[in-house]
Simulated scan of single mutants.
Amino acid sequence: MDIRTTPNPVIRRAERALHRLNARHPWDHNAHFHRWVLRSLPPGAARVLDVGCGRGDLVRALAGRVAQVDGIDPDPRMALVAAERCRDLDGVAIRRRGLAAHAETLRAEGTGGHYDALTMIASLHHMELEPALAQARDLLRPGGRLLVVTLTVPRTRLGLLWDIGDALSNPLIGLVKHPRPVRDPVPGPSIPVQDPAWSHEELRERSREILPGAVLHRREGFRSTLRWQKPI
């Protein structure tokens, strides 16, 4: 049973109550992992690619740590918003394209395989899994790191229990991060959303051959993280 989609009336009432509490004490599930990304950058990282950069929040955070940040997003509106928000930053380039197109462009230019790190926050599940992981792998230099934060769907008993724990802890994290209730929220540019197609276990299994030795963890906020370093 997936508690996110089950028609069970008790669960749906509980969901509505949690949703009201979450709306009063919201927190950004993606920005929550920016510190993990920054801590996980390889030493001396100089060039990073952020895939699915959205509004450019992580790009801005990375720009304070590395000399060159490339942000890509296939959504025209998101790419425009990110470009506007990052126009004051040196060493930042925002392009409206997806990962496959970016990889193909760099291959044609003969400049592939040169990123010190490649980041994906809530963007991997918008792509075909195996091709995206392979493209990310090939864009990294030897010793470069792939850092992924992705949504997953629960398909095992452990996955379901973790999902329930996330649902219950979500408003508590919101209370800590945003203790003052929001009464008149100001909407920002909406980010395209898509439901995940794989579970944490499926992600581990399907990434095994492409990214041998990748480290995966279940995380808060209905997320999983994947960290992989390209062999030298």
Rank of each mutant, 00 (worst) to 15 (best):
P74N: 11
D75K: 06
D75L: 13
P76G: 05
R77P: 04
A79W: 03
L80N: 09
V81C: 13
E84H: 05
E84D: 05
C86Y: 03
C86I: 05
L89G: 02
L89A: 03
L89K: 01
V92E: 06
R95T: 07
R96I: 01
R96L: 01
R97M: 14
G98I: 09
H102A: 08
E104I: 04
R107V: 10
R107E: 12
G110R: 15
G110Y: 15
T111W: 08
G112W: 11
H114R: 14
D116G: 13
M120A: 15
L124P: 06
L124D: 06
H126M: 11
H126G: 10
E128D: 15
L129R: 02
P131N: 01
A132H: 01
A132Y: 01
A132W: 00
L133F: 02
A134C: 01
Q135L: 14
A136I: 03
L139A: 08
L139E: 15
L140G: 04
L140F: 10
L140R: 02
R141E: 07
R141W: 04
P142K: 10
P142G: 04
P142V: 07
G144Q: 09
G144A: 12
L146N: 13
L147K: 14
L147Y: 14
V148I: 15
V148F: 10
V148P: 09
V148S: 07
V148T: 10
T150M: 08
T150S: 14
L151R: 05
L151P: 00
T152H: 09
T152A: 12
V153P: 01
R155M: 13
R157L: 14
L160K: 11
L161A: 08
D163T: 15
G165W: 00
G165R: 03
G165Q: 02
A167C: 03
L168N: 00
L168T: 06
P171A: 08
P171C: 10
L172N: 09
G174S: 07
G174A: 08
L175Y: 14
L175C: 15
V176T: 08
